[in-house]
Structures are given as structure tokens and as C-alpha cells.
Amino acid sequence: METFADEYYVGAYWGPRKESPEDCARRTAELLTLLSACDPLLAHWYKPARSRKDARKQPLMPSDLAMLTESFRRGANREKGGPAIEQLGFTFWFGNGGARGEDVDLRITCGDCGGATPNSCVMTLPSIGANTEQLITAPVLARVVRSMALAWEPDWATATSWEHRAAMAETPTAGGFVGWVTYLPRRRGIVPPLPAPVRIEPVENRGALIVLTPERLTASNPEHVERGKRVGELLARSGVLEPVIAR
């Protein structure tokens, strides 16, 4: 069974945006539908429960808008025992029901319009398992990032490893570095030409994906780290790469 030295994740991040539990549920349903076509591991999702066995009794697919809406409503940020604080948005997390280390988790925070907490959709990826080899590849992760971009319309998204993220800067921030796969919306500007083997792919009419390397990116590969920093410099110079901040 393969074990990766790096631990990978996919994350989409955006600034303040007022959305209701119904809005969050609709976007989540769209995301889950898109993810189901990316890889078999991403086709089944379950509500959180005390055990994985219990979780499998509460599937989220096919998407149930009423169930998702209620889940976000229950996840409203609030002081203990107090009413929901509307401007802080909602949080909902769930997984694909896999065994520990082989599972995929999704944590979504949306609807924050005050800027106190960043809106985000973060997927943690498995480190072991027979299917991990096919999941953690540039083509599959590009499809996952694309799915998040279409569903959430974020200010920035990436698929990379935590180790690579740390290697990019002493204090890397969302939107401020280049991962294995990076999404930049068109409203940030036009992505300039980048040196091979970096690849740029359009995301409909919304923005662009930047794939840093076709092979598996690792923080232990100095070429990957150097390329990430170099591409980040080129994008920052063009004005399209900057931290996700409140607007």
C-alpha cells in the first residue's frame, strides 16, 4: 500500500459574501455533483456521525437540498447558547466514509459577510490506500479544483501539499502562493504566459487553472519548489496573485 511523504489538500477561498443556508446548500450540491465525475472516491459523501459505520447510514448523495440547508443552518456561528451571528456565516463538514488515512473530508465555511472568518471549501486527501495513487495526480486534482471554482466562484483555489505550501513562504496565505494546481478568476486579471512545463487551462469564461508540473509535486523536489516561487513572482508582477482579503 503506497504512502505519500507529503500530505495533500485542495482548498478554495473567497472574501466576504453574504449567503443564506439555502445558497450554501445549492453551491454544495453543485460541487458534490461535479466531484462525483472526478474520481470514484469522490462520488459518495455522508453526514458526520459518531462512527464511520453510523455515517454510512446518512448519505448525502444524491444531493438533498433540504438536508444540506438544515445542516448549514445548524452550523451557524454563534456564542455558546446564544442566537446565530448572521454575519459570521455557516460551517458544515463531512466525509466520504473511508477508513482512517484513506478517507476524504470536506469542510465548508460560507456566508461570512463581515470578514471575521475566511470563507473556504477545504478538502483533505488520503495519505494511504489502494486508490490514492490515481486520485493524487495532476489531471484529477485539476478537475477537483475546477469543480470548486465552478461551484463556489472563489477568489483563489489550489491543490497542493501542506509541505509545499510551507516551502513557498515563511507565512504563506491563501491567494499568495502557487500550488501544484492553482485557480485564478478572470476578475483578478489575465494570467501571463508561463515557462514550460507549466500549463494554463481555461475554466469556461471564469478564469484559469495553472498546473505547475504534470508529475506528482513534492516539497522534497527542489525543482518543484523553485518553479513554484518563480511562477509566483511572475504572477505577482502581473498583478493577478495576491492574498485573499476582505473587499
Rank of each mutant, 00 (worst) to 15 (best):
S127I: 15
F92H: 11
N131F: 04
L106R: 05
L65C: 03
C110R: 13
P126E: 02
V104A: 04
G95W: 11
F72T: 01
P118H: 07
G75L: 02
G101I: 09
N96K: 11
N96R: 12
L65A: 02
T117V: 13
G115L: 08
W93S: 11
E86L: 05
W93T: 06
T117R: 09
T69V: 06
D103A: 07
K80P: 05
T124S: 14
N119G: 02
E102H: 03
E133H: 13
T117G: 05
R73I: 00
N96C: 15
R73F: 00
G97T: 13
C121H: 11
F90Q: 14
S120G: 13
E70K: 02
D105L: 14
C121S: 14
P83W: 05
G98C: 13
E86K: 00
F92V: 04
L125A: 12
D112A: 06
M67C: 07
T132F: 08
A66V: 09
G81I: 15
I136T: 09
N77M: 04
Q134N: 01
M67F: 05
L65F: 03
G97I: 09
M67G: 03
C113V: 08
E102W: 04
L106I: 11
N96F: 06
Q87E: 12
T124M: 10
N77C: 10
R73A: 02
L68D: 02
L135I: 07
G129A: 15
D105P: 09
A84Y: 06
G95F: 14
D112I: 10
G115R: 10
P83G: 07
I128S: 09
C121V: 15
G98A: 12
T69Y: 01
F94R: 05
T69S: 02
F90D: 10
N119K: 04
G98E: 10
G115N: 07
G111F: 08
G111Q: 06
A116T: 04
D103L: 06
L68R: 01
N131D: 01
D64W: 00
D112H: 03
W93A: 15
A116M: 13
I85Y: 01
A76Y: 03
R73E: 00
R78C: 01
V122R: 15
G115F: 09
R100K: 14
I128A: 13
R78A: 01
D103T: 10
A76Q: 07
G89V: 02
P126N: 14
M123S: 11
E70R: 04
N96V: 08
T124W: 15
F94N: 03
V104G: 00
W93F: 09
N96H: 11
E70D: 05
C110E: 13
A76R: 02
G81M: 11
R78G: 03
S120K: 14
T124R: 09
R73M: 00
G81W: 08
A84I: 07
C121E: 15
F92Q: 12
F92G: 10
G82F: 05
P83E: 11
F90C: 07
T109H: 15
